[in-house]
């Protein structure tokens, strides 16, 4: 697994995720990266990567909506100007 730090340097994170507990894709996977988003700007996140953790919070066993909420809240949070993703191919 790789730790990727995404700096919040754009209005949007700019990723689309698919997957979550009780679906064919058990862990959230990046299916799209939008140009101009923070994820695209960091140049380390790639389509196809599976997200294991967000800021140390494990996404294992979480339903899709909950995993998406955790990522969205991490991006909206004013505590940090970055998000740490633990990802795997």
């Amino acid at each position: 697994a790789t730790l990727v730090r995404v700096v919040k340097n754009a209005n949007t994170l700019g990723i689309a995720i698919e997957g979550g507990a009780n679906t064919r894709q058990p862990m959230p996977r990046i299916v799209t990266i939008q140009k101009g988003g923070s994820a695209h700007n960091c140049e380390q996140l790639k389509v196809g990567l599976v997200i294991l953790e967000v800021n140390g919070i494990s996404l294992r066993g979480r339903e899709h909506k909950e995993a998406a909420r955790i990522i969205a809240e991490a991006f909206k949070s004013k505590e940090k100007d970055y998000i740490d993703f633990l990802v795997v191919e």
Binding site: A16, T23, R24
Partner: peptide, 16 residues
């Protein structure tokens, strides 16, 4: 395991 996965529903996609 593969059969079990195939019986699971496909996941939705969320843009963040």
């Amino acid at each position: 395991v593969r059969e079990k996965r195939l019986t699971l529903p496909p996941s939705e996609i969320t843009m963040l």
